[in-house]
Each structure stands twice: as structure tokens, then as C-alpha cells.
Computed example of a mutant assay.
Amino acid sequence: MKIKSLSAGLALGALAAFGASAGQITVFDWSGYDDPGFFNAYVEKHGGAPDFSFFADDHEGFNKLRSGFKADLAHPCSGLIGKMRAADLIKPIDTARLDAWGELLPTLAQLPEVSSDGQIWMVPFDWGNTGLVYRTDLVEGDIDLKMLADPALAGKVSLPDVVEDAYGFAALAVGVNDWSEMTDEKFQEASDFLRAVHKNVRFYWSDQGQLDAAIKSGEIHAAWAWNATELSLIFDNVPVKLVRDPEVGVASWACGYVHLKDGEGSDEDVYDFLNALSDAESGKYLIEAWGYAHANAGSYGIADQEAVRAYGYSDPESFMAESLFGFRVPNEMAAKMLKEFERIKAGF
């Protein structure tokens, strides 16, 4: 993404003047989230960034933490919070130490995964959309989710190698926009649909860069992808579109930071980092440079308004109310989906 690369490059250049890492704490994160544009206030106070280690997806990150990997903070999506609590990996967040807690979007701050049992378990940070991204010059006519099972797209489709995202796609395709409506019959219908699409799948993507490159080259014509893919390719002058038609469906996701129990860094540094991430200026950077939405409601007023409108973030609460949220999948359903998704990918 050109704008992201430029902004990140400037931020990294500024960071180099301080040194590569302040080293006070270790953050376990998705690749790319060591971008200091997200936590400039921390860099200014500590003279550098914290140490970072990375995971490819939530399940890999969870398994690594459960096997003994030590860090102070981790960045899961909210669907993983229940498992992390059950495994005794995280401890409650002290919101009295968060300067911007009262500025966070209510829908995110009040999620049951975030707030339960009288405690706060995650500081929401980023959220966004997962939708149908396609090459407008390579796919003729109208497109909808069910078209990804059309033999005309054989070998030209990519789905995420993340069970919640894949089943979110299938749920919308079979008419489910609320996980409480996923009956056994609808689950079977969604699974059958994924099996039909599997015949057209060239690869299941786990790395956005891999997917973006495949769409850019024309290898992939249509994919269920994060909204950052659309923005990245548009900046590279690739004719793509993310379908935002309610009749087609868009899913939303939300991720944030948790305080790990086995971390060896100081709580003061942990909360310095969380405060930097939660600030509206961090959100402005996230919106403008990455195209993702931020948890701080104040971010939308100070970010570039053309970008805010283009991404559909002018009214974040309404947008989230009309989306299928992947993180609200009941635990029993999530386990059922995981088992069936592995069978589908294996061709069964």
C-alpha cells in the first residue's frame, strides 16, 4: 500500500533516531503492527519501540502462548478471548490507568468478550470489514457471494485460512446474518456451500501480501478478504472493488490488546503502550495509513474525512450494527466449524 509504506517509512526513520527498540516490554502481535505510527507517544516517552514477536493467526498465537512463550501484551481478535481466559493466560485490564477508555466506541467497549464478570479483558484497538473483493476488469456482470462456487471461477478464488472468516462468508451466502440463527440445518447448508467453493479455490490465504500479489497479477479474480486488500490494490492502480451491498453482505471483526499473566515487563510500561494505542492520534494514523477503523471514537473527527467516508466509517456504530460480527460465534459452534473446515480443506 503506497500510502502505508510512505507513512510507515517516515515513522520508522524517526524511530531509528531513537534506536531500534526500547526493550522494556515484549508485544506478541500480527506482522506489521510494529509500525510506530500506532504508538508514537510510547516512542517519544521511552526513546524507542518495545520488543515485538509475531504470529500468523490467532490459533498459532494461542498455541504458542499456551506452550510457554512469554510476552507482556498480545493482540488477539475478540473471538479468542474466551479461550485465553479459560487457559489462564490473561489478567484484567485496569481501565483507571487508560486515559482514553471513556472515548472508545460503546459497541466495542461493551462486547461480552471485552467486558464480563465485572472485569475488562481486552483493550479494543482495530476493527474492520471482511467482504467480497474482486477484479472489476476480470469478472463480468454482477457478482454475489454464491458466484464464488460458479465453475467459471475455477482456480480463480481465494478464501481466508481462518475458520471464523470462512464460515462468516458462508453464513452470509446462505442467508444467516446473526450467529444465533445458525441452526444445524443452516450449518450444514453453509458447509455444503464451502465445499462447492473449495473446488474453485486456488489457495487459502493467511498472508495479506500473498493475496494482494495474486489479485494484482490476475491469478485470483475474487476473494473473501479484509478491506485493507481493496485499499492496497487501489493505491497500486489495480481495478478492484469490495462489495458493500447489504444484499451481498459484509462481515466485521474486532481485535485488541490483552495483558498477559506471564509477562516480565513492568505494568507502567504496559499501560504506557496501551495508552499510546488508544489515543485518537493512533486511530487517525490507522484509518489514513492502513484503512482499518479504530476503537477511539475521536479518531473519525480528526482523520481525513474523504478517507472516512470512502471506507464507510462516517457512522461507526451504525456500520457495526449492520454487519455480521465473526467474534460472536458461540464456543460450541466455533469448535464445530473448526473441525468441519479442516475436513473441507482436505477435500472431504
Rank of each mutant, 00 (worst) to 15 (best):
E306Q: 07
V248H: 08
P36Y: 09
G301W: 01
F169K: 02
C255V: 08
E185N: 05
S252N: 13
F319A: 13
M122Y: 10
S115V: 15
A225F: 10
K45M: 06
V240Q: 10
A295F: 08
S158T: 09
A152Q: 02
G32C: 01
I3P: 03
K45I: 02
P316H: 07
G37K: 03
R97I: 11
D57S: 06
K216G: 04
Y300P: 06
E288Q: 08
E189K: 05
D207Q: 07
L159Y: 03
A96N: 14
K284V: 15
F55I: 06
L148H: 05
P316N: 12
D34Y: 00
A297H: 04
A297G: 08
L277W: 13
V163W: 05
K70C: 01
L338R: 07
P92S: 03
Y42I: 11
L242I: 08
P50S: 02
D279S: 11
D304F: 01
A334H: 04
D35T: 13
K2E: 07
K216T: 05
E281D: 07
V270Y: 13
Y285I: 15
L172S: 05
P316L: 07
D57P: 00
L80P: 00
G131L: 10
L286A: 10
P246C: 01
P246R: 00
K339N: 13
C255Q: 08
Q24D: 12
A96P: 14
H294D: 14
D117R: 03
A100N: 12
P239Q: 12
P160K: 02
L274H: 09
A87D: 12
P36K: 06
E189C: 05
S217L: 07
V308P: 01
E342W: 10
A100C: 12
L286G: 07
S323K: 09
H46M: 11
I93V: 15
A214V: 14
R66L: 05
Y313N: 12
N40F: 03
